[in-house]
Design a protein around this nucleic acid. Structure first.
Lengths: 209, 209, 209, 209
DNA sequence: GATGAATGAGAGTTCATTCAT
DNA sequence: GATGAATGAACTCTCATTCAT
């Protein structure tokens, strides 16, 4: 097997190392946000990070690993926000909960659409096994929690395993938001209701046996 | 403006030319299907097409233009199939119509998931104006026709312009199918009901004002 | 010897052939004038000439031969003008003659500085033997005639063979005019007096034994 | 504006880097001297320099920048020699000064006529702003100094700004010498007197008001 | 551990020239 | 003679990765 490692080379335990890794990640994010995939090369990132390329390769075995780390970090950030949001709406009615989660998703994505799109793009070309890694599954977990919290408002549990359902909800959210983010400057007013409709519809779909 | 042309360079008039263009397109598709984006370079494609690189550039001003042509060709194929399907379900009840369209989408995508995913990926990095070009809008048009055909089964027209709605339906279909296509070999049995639920839910979503 | 031929492949005797050759030459000139060396390639020229590349190669064995023909044609045009001018000043005093010739040179060059510069540039990379071909020597001949006509106004014949002298005068004229043509839009007012000074100085240089 | 940068990419700080840069410049000069523009391509130059192409591009953003550096280096060399010569003849009579400067120019150009011609050729296709850059203007400056030093031997200052005059002298020198360098192996005996005559004539031109 | 100079395979693209039709 | 599709060597430039210092 020559499947390339995609995990960070070493868990940096010392403070300086951690700082270096963070600097690299931050630089990667900045580059991606400002120049999209065009400037996303290891030399550039190292330069922006104020570090030598050699150092970059000390912590990431290859470029893909860096991309994965970036994606993971972003998912982590999202997961934290999502978990908090899910907790905060655990007592609200389902629809209101969905509405607030949708609002959150839109806000997150529109904070830096170029960055989000670039990450998404990068994610797609990773070997398949890599996807749905730890932090991705945290997102799924948060949604599962949300479904749990509102179990009694859901007619019967839809087809598909709960995990599939959760993933579907995430995917739907991501495409719809991303599509609008690509186009304009800000989120169009119709986005939020459409998104809520898509999510609620999926969960509550009536006539579908 | 030096925005690169993305249209074919010359309309091939002689029979030989047309054969060459087809050979190139076919080679492009084959390469994309078998090696995904990794082998998608002009030299390789020309080689597979049994043609010189020069010939490739005689008909496509650059690599992106070839990608666009491939995307267009695929969309065209899809559009034809979708239009036919929409016509064939014009008298069927909404839900059954959706179910059949969903079946079609799954079949299409699973015919060659790697190819479809690669094209999708490639499409994303084209300049935005290029997207939703002629054949893409044919897809939207077909969906609009479907909505028209079943207008009286739809409670009130959902938020967003009809075009937005149609695009949302397409996007939702694409992600859900693509996500499952990525993973396994064949479509999981739960895919079809989940997709129908997503589409029907979006269109019929009840309690959402 | 594999010194490439640089002469036209065949002397076109039929009317249609001559027309084709002229069309090609004219196209070459137009391309060079409008796009400088950037668009100066055989395919482009043939296209502009409304002729197939194949036809171009019927009359010119290679690109260099076409360049030579263009240079020759331009020199021919210049030679005709120069011969006429020389004749018209044969009775005028030397200085006035020089002044009028200088005026002519400036006018010619500034008619189409891009074209002239491009030709000049192209000329330099031809194999050396090619230079000073027939029409170039007509230019030299015209100057020799001018010197002849004003022989008694020239102190003693300067060093160097008359041909060298004539060539020097041509070269000096070309650089000075070309240098100013490169820069601005029109000829600066100081160009003419400076040029006359250079030419007259060379011919009349006093204290130089 | 996407006018291409023509300046060196990074100032090499380590000893190894400086050696590489010098190797590249030397290789560029050698290639130009031996094969003229025919072999002047980045791969060849890197090969001759015993360096990878990548290294070349580490220090020069593109091929033109390398050409500029070569031209600059050559001008620098010339400027140093010219400034010294001008200083050394500051007390000599004008004509003797000119004669010695002419001798210097001939020697310089005939040291490596192919190289000099190739550089000259290359210089012409650079964007115009680039020309007359620092080192070129040093040449002009040296001539201005010479004129200053012999101001009282010059009848009245000729037409045109002093800078134009200095440039004219440089241009005249360059063409005359280059023309003879192109042809033969060594400088013909008539070259030096003709050149002096041209320069002195321009400066002292008598009857030209 | 860190540095950054060096590498070189490989990608996109051009254009003079040929030759079957 | 004319056509123009086809050719492919050649060229410029990029960037992931290595390794001597």
């Amino acid at each position: 097997m020559d499947k390339p490692h995609l995990e960070a080379r070493k868990a940096p335990k010392q403070a300086r190392s951690q700082a270096t890794v963070q600097a690299i990640l931050t630089a990667g994010a900045r580059v991606l946000a400002q120049e999209s995939l065009a400037g996303f090369n290891t030399n550039r990132i190292a330069e922006v990070a104020g570090v030598s390329v050699g150092s970059l390769y000390q912590y990431f075995p290859n470029k893909a690993a860096l991309a994965v780390a970036l994606i993971d970090q972003e998912r982590e950030r999202l997961a934290v926000a999502l978990e908090a949001a899910v907790a905060s709406v655990s007592d609200a009615p389902l629809l209101e909960g969905l509405s607030r989660l949708a609002r959150l998703a839109i806000e997150q994505q529109f904070q830096d659409p170029v960055y989000a799109a670039a990450l998404d793009h990068e994610e797609r070309r990773l070997p398949l096994g890599t996807r749905l890694a730890s932090s991705e599954s945290r997102l799924v977990g948060a949604i599962l929690q949300f479904l749990e919290d509102h179990r009694d408002e859901l007619p019967t549990f839809p087809d598909g395993s709960p995990k599939e359902v959760a993933r579907d909800l995430l995917l739907i959210t991501r495409v719809l938001v991303e599509a609008d983010a690509h186009g304009g400057q800000g989120a169009p007013p119709s986005l939020h209701p459409r998104l809520v409709r898509a999510l609620a519809g999926y969960l509550l779909a009536p006539g579908v046996a």
